[in-house]
């Protein structure tokens, strides 16, 4: 009996099949990770809610009209100048901080601002109010929000470097990796309460 050799399976077309699948996945793949500017909305106020009285100087007013122009504290401004203006306002430190659960926070010791009496008292009193028109473009609105958040993160970063010697994003990152670390938590909270992000959205104008 002649020994027959096992016929080999032709694998030449394997590459073609794999290529076909590969191209299918290449086309259907979306690599982008979802990312965005995160915000926390305020809770719905109760019916009988009376808004607290806030001193004019502690409010930084930003208006965006429907032609996407910016009016900041009564003056026209370009978006690129907004961050510095907001930083100057937040970091002014011209007075005493708010009284938190009976404990006065006193004057701002870490502020490096002009300490002007006509600007904000303390970062925890400084409120940024953004009012936009219903017709404002969303792109502009988000740019403004982004600049304001940038102002806060720059200030937090500065303070974090001063107090703990590392940039704030890194501090936050290391806390995220190790949530049980109390000292890291305290540091993050400390920076966050030193410069609390208070950006409020006013009712939009509609015409």
């Amino acid at each position: 009996m002649a020994r027959r050799e096992n016929p080999e399976i032709n694998a030449g077309s394997m590459a073609d099949i794999a290529f076909l699948l590969l191209i299918f996945f290449l086309v259907t793949t979306t690599m982008n990770v979802d990312s965005g500017v995160s915000k926390k909305l305020s809770e719905k106020p109760p019916e009988d809610y009376v808004p607290p009285i806030i001193k004019e100087k502690n409010i930084f007013e930003v208006n965006i009209n429907r032609d996407n122009d910016l009016l900041v504290e009564g003056d026209r401004m370009e978006i690129k100048d907004l961050k510095d203006a907001a930083m100057a306002f937040i970091d002014n430190g011209g007075g005493d901080g708010k009284i938190d659960e009976g404990v006065a926070t006193g004057p701002c010791t870490y502020c490096k601002g002009a300490k002007s009496t006509s600007s904000s008292d303390h970062p925890n009193k400084a409120i940024i109010s953004v009012q936009s028109d219903r017709g404002t473009e969303y792109g502009t609105y988000l740019k403004v929000q982004n600049e304001l958040i940038r102002a806060y993160s720059e200030l937090r970063n500065r303070l974090s470097k001063e107090r703990y010697g590392i940039p704030f994003p890194e501090l936050e990152e290391s806390y995220k990796d190790d949530r049980s670390n109390e000292s890291l938590k305290k540091k993050v909270e400390d920076i966050k309460t030193s410069y609390p992000e208070i950006i409020s959205d006013a009712e939009p104008t509609s015409n």
């Binding site: 979802d34 990312s35 965005g36 500017v37 995160s38 915000k39 926390k40 909305l41 305020s42 809770e43 719905k44 965006i64 936009s132 028109d133 219903r134 017709g135 404002t136 473009e137 969303y138 609105y141 988000l142 929000q145 959205d201 939009p204 509609s206």
Partner: peptide, 23 residues
């Protein structure tokens, strides 16, 4: 328009969905 976004936001606040992310 910002108006549309604000409409959505008010509705989200009504149902207490307070964490949002502007993509």
């Amino acid at each position: 328009n910002v108006g549309t976004i604000i409409d959505i936001r008010l509705k989200l606040r009504d149902v207490n969905a307070l964490k949002i992310s502007y993509s």
